[in-house]
């Protein structure tokens, strides 16, 4: 038996979330006494590095286009079958979640997305996952003999635990796409919100889009990604992809700074798993303070530039 991990590469580079799944697969395999195989879409050179994160065997095929989950799920399932893998581990992103359901059907496997823990093997095979937008945790018993898991980012940490291994080429040329790629657009420069470790977020307390300069200055000083509350995106003050919360993006950064956001339950649902939360609000009764680690009751227009200044001093020292 073995564990199969799919590690997604973009232009032969791995994001943290791809390395985390390799770690997850390696740790699961070692607790089961099985071994871990990693399938990846990168050059042999780039793929070899996955050994450092615990991969024992690496299979690579070179492709920059993973847009067809029908084709890719067939590749992953075929590798799982040919290598006798009973568990498939994927990243918990748009690609991983779309693949997970398909692979679960192909393998007649139990499926859990956004797992936050390694499986507990004492009492069957139990993984935890956040439910009700963070208000509860579900303990899933995965009963079928085969399993598919997508691993929530920032859940089990990332560590180096091995040496590079020579990748073996996997021939994917016989697989045909059923969806045609027209164009891929990527926002250059900043770290995308779902992967950001530092986030500066602002709400209706900003009064208008023209005031966002102080937010951008703070984010730039910190190296953070910007986010916003729903009404701010709905009124067009900020782009939709910045909208966080229950009906926007759910995020889990190390630091979330909330500025002029009241902390409505639907907003908190998307951000309350952040490791550290700082709230800046002039209303001491704002509900956000209940979810915060550090709070500043003050006018944001005074305090935000002062925070930026303090950070600049800190960075320079």
């Amino acid at each position: 038996m073995s564990v199969l991990v799919f590690a997604e590469a973009i232009n032969n580079k791995y994001k943290k979330s791809s390395l985390e799944v390799v770690n997850y697969g390696a740790k699961l395999a070692s607790s089961q006494g099985s071994n871990v195989i990693v399938l990846t879409n990168a050059s042999a050179d780039a793929a070899a590095e996955l050994g450092k994160y615990g991969a024992q065997k690496v299979l690579n095929f070179e492709s920059d286009s993973l847009h067809d989950n029908k084709m890719l799920s067939q590749i992953i399932s075929d590798v799982a079958n040919s290598h006798n893998a009973d568990t498939v581990i994927l990243s918990d992103n748009s690609k991983g979640k779309s693949l997970a359901g398909r692979i679960a059907i192909k393998l007649d496997a139990a499926a859990v997305s956004s797992a936050t823990t390694l499986p507990n093997l004492e009492d069957g095979f139990v993984v935890q996952k956040s439910l009700f937008s963070g208000k509860a945790i579900g303990h899933y018993q995965m009963k079928a003999s085969k399993k598919v898991i997508t691993v929530a980012g920032n859940s089990i940490g990332l560590e180096e635990m091995g040496q590079p291994v020579a990748a073996e080429a996997f021939d994917a040329s016989a697989y045909n796409a059923t969806v045609e790629m027209v164009e891929t657009k990527r926002v250059e420069g900043t770290v995308p919100l779902p992967e950001a470790e530092l986030v500066v977020s602002a709400g209706r307390g900003m009064k208008g889009p023209e005031n966002w300069g102080i937010i951008e200055d703070l984010a730039k000083t910190l190296g953070a990604t910007t986010a916003c509350s729903r009404p701010v995106a709905d009124t067009g003050w900020r782009p939709h992809h910045e909208h966080v919360g229950q009906t926007g993006i759910a995020i889990k950064p190390n630091l979330y700074i909330a500025i002029g956001i009241s902390g409505a339950i639907q907003h908190l649902a998307g951000v309350n798993h952040s490791k550290t939360i700082v709230v800046i609000n002039k209303d001491p009764e704002a509900p956000f303070f209940k979810a915060a680690d550090y709070g500043i009751v003050a006018d944001l227009f005074d305090v935000v530039p002062r925070l930026t200044e303090a950070l600049q001093k800190f960075k320079a020292s």
């Binding site: 779309s98 359901g101 398909r102 439910l131 009700f132 579900g138 009906t247």
Partner: peptide, 16 residues
Amino acid sequence: TIDYNGSLVGGMISEL
């Protein structure tokens, strides 16, 4: 769905 946040049903139906 905003309760179980699974995102699995779409892939499963497609595969079926």
